[in-house]
Design a binder for these strands. Structure first.
Length: 562
RNA sequence: GCGCCUGUAGCUCAGUGGAUAGAGCGUUAGCCUCCGGAGCUAAAGGCCAAGGGUUCGAAUCCCUUCAGGCGCUCCA
């Protein structure tokens, strides 16, 4: 048996295969300068054939390059195969199919190498080590502290937290951050709402603001405040409202932190918007744009020349009353991330109702001399709950805490991570509650519990000294499929990070569970054949590590029994 | 009116420009003397919203139209 253990995963194999194909093309067209030059810009793609019977990998390079090479796709494929070196540790055979696909069947030794690496690396299998550490700031939820977190925040939290873990697996150093909007008009509106409710509570009347916060939580805050500060109604209303704002901010942000902790989300940094107002960061940001000739004054306000940067209209940075807009604060905040704190990349998860802000913010960064690609925004479409959009300004909302209580953390996080962010989700609450037992998350967790059970059952035999596993014995269709899926884990992580799509990992975990259940039903692990038993046990162990890792990325538990 | 997102099985959703468009739920028929049946194996179910275009090849890229969601405040 000749093993090349440096090929640890599907990614490694793809890269080796690409190099092999590139070499073959090189030697095929050696001497033809025109074609050799075109080769430099050719991207060789490796795919999985639709049908496993076609082989393990395929490439369309012969079809793609046929025109440049001035050859028929099939003829080019034929010539290419003639140049490819079939080595014992890698490629076993290559053949042509359809209009000019080249299908590769890989050597058994390759799959053995995957499995041995997965067993050795255990819970670290699939982790990427970058040559140079990169730093990511991942900001998500960042809800206004004007009330409890709602179901849309639950989606953003699930997506952001999982994407953060994906980047950690992809080799990045990640800071999880919450931007606390503790300044601005909405806080004023909140304090007016509380004041009106508090007056109402003590039997006095005060007009409730037109677009005030009507939720139950505001009444609770008002009652708590009036109990704590009896006689508040004798104070100057504006001063009392300021006290109320501070009181509500503290209560609400603590409540948000607690709800998020109950949802298994923990932040490294809670960044206060108010700090940008008090430390001069906002005026610094605005004058930076001024220095770059990107602002002007009109009607007493300072404007950003956004149209010069391709936006629909110019934007106010400093109002005529001297108060900076949210926009100016957001610019200062992102300059703080990218300049002061020197993150290589900042990713924000925003609801679709903020999508119009994406270009404006990126262009303001550009005007400040920052590469706008260093800020990536993931827009998630809004969650509808039985046809009603969630808003804090109407009463009767369904909160994150309600959701966790009714549906559970695991099912909620798995569900939100099963849909790509651009899906307009309709969250059917009744169905989620009823079907929580049929939820796909249990199917995946059951697979993990089953793996653990098999390993437990074999523990006593294993301790007595089982024969060493021989991965080359794993030749059944289901065994091979499972090894291949295990080896694809790092590729899934890489793709999820590149596409900023957290849903890939939950889908992968589901596929892995399906693949394992299928293996379980057709291949018995416990067997008279001790080498086969040891080999299958090794496969189950490798699958368990990878399933456990993928569940931990999604932020849910991997139970050993259920 | 302008911009962003979406339209795929009865329902909820996947789908790297590639081969016969896939899952789950629901429907129907099977499967343990045996490692956990919260499982497995099948069947049925499709004009990929509509119409053009690009090319060896389009659910995927481009244009137009239709339908739905969201945005277009000196709000955040």
């Amino acid at each position: 048996m000749q093993l090349n253990l440096s090929i640890k995963s599907r990614l490694d194999a793809e890269n080796a295969l690409k190099a092999e194909i590139a070499n073959a093309l090189e030697s095929l067209f050696n001497g033809n300068e025109e074609i050799t030059e075109a080769l430099n810009s050719l991207e060789i793609e490796i795919e999985t054939p639709k049908d496993a019977s076609f082989g393990d990998f395929s490439t369309n390079v012969a079809m793609k390059f046929a025109k440049t090479a001035k050859m028929a796709p099939k003829a080019l494929a034929e010539a290419l195969i003639g140049q490819i070196d079939c080595q014992p540790a890698m490629i076993r055979s290559a053949d042509i199919a359809g209009p000019g696909f080249i299908n590769f069947t890989m050597a058994e030794e390759l799959f053995a190498s995957y499995l041995i690496n997965a067993l050795e690396q255990k819970g670290d299998y699939g982790k990427v080590v970058l040559p140079e550490k990169k730093r990511l700031n991942m900001e998500y939820v960042s809800a206004n502290p004007t009330g409890p977190l709602h179901i849309g925040n639950a989606r953003g939290g699930a997506i952001g937290d999982t994407l953060a873990s994906i980047f950690e697996w992809a080799g990045w150093e990640v800071t999880r951050e919450f931007y606390l909007n503790d300044a601005g008009n909405q806080i004023l509106k909140l304090s007016e709402s509380i004041y009106a409710r508090a007056m109402d509570h003590i039997g006095k009347s005060f007009p409730f603001p037109d677009d005030g916060y009507k939720g139950e939580d505001v009444i609770d805050l008002a009652i708590a405040f009036s109990d704590l500060y009896p006689g508040f109604e004798n104070g100057e209303p504006r001063e009392v409202m300021e006290q109320m704002a501070a009181f509500a901010l503290e209560k609400n942000s603590a409540a948000m932190e607690q709800s998020l902790a109950g949802y298994n989300i923990h932040y490294d940094v809670w960044f206060k918007e108010s700090s940008l107002h008090s430390n001069g960061a906002i005026s610094k940001a605005v004058s930076l744009l001024g220095q770059n000739n990107a602002t002007y004054e009109q009607g007493g306000a300072i404007w950003f020349k956004a149209t010069e940067y391709g936006c629909d209209k110019d934007e106010v940075l400093i109002r005529s009353n001297g108060v900076p807009t949210y926009y100016a604060a957001d610019l200062a905040y992102h300059l703080d991330k990218l300049v002061e704190r020197k993150f290589d990349l900042a990713i924000n998860i925003w609801g679709a109702d903020h999508h119009g802000h994406v270009k404006r913010l990126q262009m303001a960064l550009a005007a400040a001399g920052i590469d706008p690609a260093r800020l990536q925004i993931v827009i998630m479409q809004l969650v509808l709950v039985t046809g009603v959009r969630q808003s804090k300004r109407k009463g009767d909302i369904f909160t994150l805490s309600d959701l966790v209580e009714d549906v559970g953390v695991d099912a909620t996080r798995f569900t939100f991570n099963s849909f790509s962010p651009s899906t307009h989700m309709d969250f059917d609450l009744e169905l989620a509650k009823q079907q929580s037992n049929e939820n796909p998350v249990f199917y995946v967790q059951y697979a993990h519990a089953r793996m653990c059970s098999i390993i437990r059952n074999l523990l006593s035999i294993n301790e007595k000294g089982l024969a060493p596993p021989d991965p080359l014995r794993l030749v059944e269709k289901q065994e091979r499929a499972l090894i291949k899926l295990i080896s694809s884990f790092s590729k899934e992580i890489a793709m999820a990070a590149t596409e900023l799509d957290s849903s890939r990992i939950a889908k992968y975990a589901y596929d892995l569970a399906t693949c394992f259940h299928s293996f379980y039903n057709s291949c018995r692990v416990i067997s008279e054949d001790e080498v086969l038993m040891a080999s299958r046990l090794a496969l189950v162990e490798a699958a368990k590590h990878v399933l456990h890792s993928s569940l931990s990325i999604v932020g849910i538990t991997a139970p050993e029994s259920m």
